[in-house]
C-alpha cells in the first residue's frame, strides 16, 4: 500500500541534506580553527580528561561552598579571612558577598585567589 507523504518532497529533502552538509563543514572549520585555543585547556598534560579547576577560573557566580570543596579548603578558612557574618555561609555566592560588603566582585575574586595561594603555600611549608 502506497503511503507517500508529501510533507517533505524529494527536492526539499535534497536541500535539507545539502544544508546539513554545509553546516557540518562550517562547524568542523570553526572547531578546527579554534582548536589551538581549546587544546591547552581541553587536553591537560597528565590527564586527558577531568581538567582541574585553577584559581584564575574563579568567577562571581561561584558559591563559597563550591570553592571550598573543589579547592579542598577548610570550611572556615575563607569565612575567617573575609570576616563573613552571613548565616547562610558557605551557601552564598561571591556576587552576593560583593553586594553585602559593597566591594567589587573583581576585588573579592582577587582576594579569594590570593587566600587560596597562601593556604596552599602555608600547607606545603608546614609539611
Amino acid at each position: 500500500m502506497e503511503n507517500k507523504n508529501k510533507f517533505i518532497s524529494h527536492r526539499s529533502r535534497k536541500i535539507l541534506i545539502a544544508a546539513v552538509i554545509v553546516a557540518g563543514i562550517f562547524s568542523w572549520l570553526y572547531v578546527a580553527l579554534n582548536m589551538s585555543s581549546l587544546r591547552p585547556r581541553t587536553f591537560y598534560l597528565h590527564n586527558y580528561y577531568r581538567q582541574p579547576i585553577v584559581v584564575k577560573d574563579i568567577s562571581s557566580w561561584m558559591t563559597f561552598d563550591y570553592i571550598n570543596k573543589v579547592f579542598h579548603l577548610s570550611p572556615s578558612y575563607l569565612k575567617d579571612a573575609f570576616k563573613i557574618s552571613d548565616q547562610k555561609y558557605p551557601r552564598i555566592t561571591i556576587e552576593q558577598l560583593s553586594k553585602e560588603t559593597k566591594a567589587s566582585s573583581t576585588e573579592i575574586i582577587k582576594n579569594v585567589q590570593n587566600y587560596i595561594v597562601i593556604y596552599f603555600s602555608s600547607s606545603t611549608n608546614g609539611q
Binding site: A23, Y30, S37, L38, T42, Y44, Y49, Q51
Partner: peptide, 29 residues
C-alpha cells in the same frame, strides 16, 4: 562535561554556535 572538567567553559561557545547553525538550517529549509 565530566570528560572536559573545567574546560567546559571553553566549549559552551561551540554549543551556542551549533545551536545557531541548526537554527539557520531550519530557516533555510
Amino acid at each position: 562535561g565530566l570528560f572536559l572538567g573545567n574546560a567546559w567553559q571553553n566549549v559552551t561557545s561551540i554549543f551556542s554556535a551549533a545551536g545557531i547553525v541548526i537554527a539557520i538550517i531550519i530557516v533555510i529549509f
